[in-house]
Design a protein around this nucleic acid. Structure first.
Length: 292
DNA sequence: CGTTTTTGACCGGCGC
DNA sequence: GCGCCGGTCAAAAACG
């Protein structure tokens, strides 16, 4: 089953990033995720939902800024406030056998009751806004849907997916913007501890695949400035309609645009790192690379 | 037949 | 304390 995660991405479902210059800040407190933007070509702007992950990924490397720059608020998800909870930061270095949720639950716990007393540690999250007709964008990994809930203030349900790799705890939420139904908001949580398959389009695979594949369904080719909707909070999506032809979603990814809201501190200087540099926090990247 | 999706129920956190 | 809500579980159904 492990290898199923390597199923080739389906071009038909992969979306395109939406990126561009001049982004405005948008905060989504509805779930602790934060979207923020950068300000330059291809710069990633992103969301960050470092919901109190104590020893956040890459913390050791000291490159993962706690996103609390400027007006960007820190994830308020108090529910996961784990004071000193030693979280084996689900980094890919120590494949977290469900580490995040530290399943070392008391034996008496039947089924539905998750380990009581143990607070869940949420992992860093990255959100992407994708202009797509399909909800579930292909990103190179295989996901299993484990739930769907109606979202308050939104006519569209939110779907919950989990990486099918048994050792991978990455999850993702997919929902449509209530403002613009054509926009799909995908939020990734955690990091894959395995690789994904490369993209035929060429590019992004290699040592950084696991990361890019995780946060970038498909590398952007077209960027569109948009503001992240805050769903239950503000739902104020503003999409600069791309001048791209809206092709059949089955036919090509070009019909989709994705706005990546990645985590990491405010975009520094993408420079030579290209898109990846925009999306992937330096710290995480180095980690990934080292890890591979 | 194995895997994925669907869906109602359950659980825990938060606000009032 | 209670109700709301987001997130997850798990049995059953659907699918390939």
């Amino acid at each position: 089953m492990e290898d199923k995660d390597r199923a080739p991405p389906d071009p038909a479902t992969a979306g395109e990033f939406v990126g561009n210059s001049s982004w405005s800040l948008s905060v989504d407190d509805s779930d602790g995720s934060h979207f923020f933007s950068g300000d330059r070509d291809g710069t990633m702007f992103g969301d960050i939902g470092w919901d109190l992950v104590p020893d956040r990924i890459g913390a050791s490397e000291g490159s993962l800024p706690p996103v609390q720059t400027g007006s960007i608020e820190q994830a308020p998800t108090s529910s996961y406030r784990s004071n000193n909870q030693s979280v084996s930061s689900s980094s890919s270095e120590d494949p977290p056998e469900k580490s995040t949720v530290s399943e070392e639950k008391p034996p008496e716990i039947p089924s539905k009751s998750k380990k009581k007393g143990q607070k869940r540690i949420r992992q860093p999250r990255f959100a992407f806004m994708t202009k797509s007709e399909v909800d579930h964008l292909e990103d190179g990994y295989r996901w299993r849907k484990y739930g769907q809930k109606a979202v308050k203030n939104s006519p569209f349900p939110r779907s919950y997916y989990r990486c099918t790799n048994s050792k991978c705890t990455v999850k993702k939420r997919v929902e449509r913007s209530c403002e613009d139904p054509t926009i799909v908001v995908t939020t990734y949580e955690g990091q894959h501890c395995h690789h994904t398959v490369g993209f035929p389009r060429g590019g992004i695979i290699s040592h950084e695949a696991s990361f890019t594949g995780q946060f970038a369904p498909t590398m952007p080719q077209f960027y569109y400035p948009i503001q992240i909707p805050t769903e239950s909070n503000t739902c104020t999506t503003t999409v600069s309609q791309p001048s791209q032809p809206h092709n059949d979603h089955k036919a090509g990814r070009l019909s989709r645009a994705t706005t990546a809201v990645s985590d990491a501190s405010p975009p520094q200087h993408p420079t030579d790192e290209g898109l990846l540099g925009d999306i992937v926090p330096r710290g995480m990247r180095s980690r990934e690379e080292r890890n591979i």
